[in-house]
Design a protein around this nucleic acid. Structure first.
Lengths: 340, 340
DNA sequence: TTGAAAGCGATACCAC
DNA sequence: GTGGTATCGCTTTCAA
């Protein structure tokens, strides 16, 4: 591998100046003669030239890189990543992925690192409901994904959490359950707060009391494994109550994993002994026995939309937050409506 | 957000030259007086300075970025990504992830893009057994992950595919099965070839004939969804044979998903009607009924090792390929050994 | 030990 | 239309 050709090499090969080559590369169509254009393009082709992104980045203060900060290895985020990837491919953008493991300090570090690398934008799934650096970063193109923060200067892409969780809870209530337990994630993130709200709304609508014992937190700011464990422990708690829960909702995929593990170990039959609704659809949902009723999030679209917002921000347009609909996918695990 | 401080600003603030600041930033400890060092560090702190990676990259022809090219959204690769991330964090490297969706043209494009972005190295899961660009790229730090290629100038990190699959097949044979079907991925990748070899070795060792009908290919170069579908179709084929398979091995996680779906639809009982062994362990393996026997790959370690190799390459050391052990995790789905 | 100055490769302004 | 050229922020000899 000899040295990579530069603008100079191309210019020499084509018998023009570097400025002209640069123009061919960047200018919109009609500003140069078809002849030089062709000459330059041919030279580029022949030398196998491709622009040095660092030089370009240095000059323009921007790159074709965007940063994506996820809190854990939840497949939900992987699905989002897919949407991000495919949308970026349309614009020749690349994605740097980093994982905060639900650690706020690490998260803030990552944002700083990304900014110092001059990525053109950041997609952030914040680990708390506040963002210490929000003022420092407020002029940088950041879009919040999945979770929102207080007094945010940043647009967000999220799902209809309240409605989604409300629907799930109602379904269980309609099936005759009076003791519906819920396994929430970290108390301090917006999705937890909103899903809890949906849950309480539904209970209220069905004349059921809100029992603190039935509301558990399985997310403990600890990342992937800790959430699975949290889902497990919460389920154990709910099933060992003096009056155990007869239905359980786990509000994310990782918590659901832990919950299913616990129920399996306890040998409770789903939905006969305990009805269950999870979150985030996945091929496993249909394979599992019983098939899992889940609240499905529009992950792929959330990924796409965040890139669109980033592009708008990039072009100095203002961008508004958007909320995408969740969908309750009814399968076997929630049981069937009892006739009353 | 006012303009980011530069070396100049720091130098002025500390009352030294920019070269000195640069030295503080890069030189190993003892080459400058403790006093200037402290002064400079203090100024950096105070201004919140962080170096511009583009300028640095332009100058050094290198970055703290590495590229990771995966073929699909198999959770196996996500686990590897985790190993990569955590190892990179130790060296302040960042990871650009891209997905080829098993498309060779796209893959080669991605390598070129990464090289033109001057990443310091690439971790590639190749989609075929050859690499068209291997000569063009041979001086670039590339490590092949999971899959190997022919006449490779690149070191690789892979698993003991032959042994792993052989063990799985033997287990099934020991359990009395004579018609063991296998669902392979793309015929053209090394893991498929090697796992098939392990399968045939085991059959041979147990005096069983190799039946073309029982050897199916569920991977069709089509990416994530197409592999799930492939696993499904292959299973349908194996179960609808005049003499159906009594045991099935699916050699990756996605194929396994499809296989389980098919078996569920066909209402075959596992392991009573059909014994089953999958690949790549995952929390779901234990949750599933029956619990899944799988060949588990050292994904996390594979991720770590590939970074170590990249670092060795980066320092011009030569690096050797390594092979990490697979492990058969026996659970319920393969049935128990029959006493004969 | 510290500093001046020469680029790294591309962009964009401004002459021609 | 095309071509000089200053410039982006940093690293790295080489002198002082």
């Amino acid at each position: 591998m000899t040295k990579k050709p530069t603008l100079h090499d191309v210019a020499k090969a084509a018998g023009v100046s570097i400025a002209t080559v640069s123009n061919v590369l960047n200018k919109k169509e009609k500003e140069l003669s078809e002849q030089t254009r062709r000459k330059v393009l041919e030279a580029i082709q022949r030398l196998g030239y491709s622009p040095n992104q660092h030089a370009r980045g240095l000059k323009k203060g921007k790159t074709n890189l965007i940063g994506f900060i996820i809190p854990d290895q939840n497949p939900f985020f992987m699905e989002i990543l897919k949407g991000i990837h495919e949308t970026c491919a349309e614009y020749d953008w690349q994605v740097i992925v980093a994982c905060s493991e639900e650690n706020e300090v690490r998260q803030n570090e990552l944002v700083d690192i990304f900014i110092s690398q001059q990525v053109s934008g950041i997609i952030l799934v914040p680990v708390t409901s506040t963002l210490a650096g929000k003022d420092k970063w407020s002029n940088f193109p950041i879009v919040l994904l999945d979770r929102e923060i207080e007094d945010s200067p940043f647009p967000s892409v999220s799902a209809t959490n309240i409605e989604g969780c409300c629907q799930a809870t109602e379904r269980l209530a309609m099936n005759g359950h009076q003791r519906i337990g819920i396994i929430l994630a970290s108390p301090d993130i917006s999705t937890t707060v909103q899903r809890r709200k949906g849950y309480e709304q539904a209970l209220h609508a069905h004349g059921l009391r809100i029992e603190p014992d039935l509301i558990t937190y399985g997310g403990e700011y600890g990342g992937t494994q800790s959430q699975i464990n949290g889902g497990y422990r919460s389920t154990m708690h709910l099933l060992n109550l003096p009056q155990p829960a007869t239905a359980i909702i786990a509000i994310n995929h990782l918590l659901m994993l832990g919950a299913l593990k616990a129920m399996k170990e306890m040998k409770v039959r789903v939905p006969d002994d305990v009805a269950f609704i999870g979150f985030d659809d996945h091929p496993w949902s249909e394979i599992n026995t019983p098939q899992l009723t889940v609240v499905s999030q529009p992950a792929y679209d959330m990924g796409r939309q965040s890139i669109h917002i980033l592009r708008a921000l990039d072009e100095d347009k203002t961008a508004r937050s958007i909320k995408l609909p969740m969908k309750l996918i009814i399968r076997e695990s929630c049981g069937t409506a009892t006739m009353m």
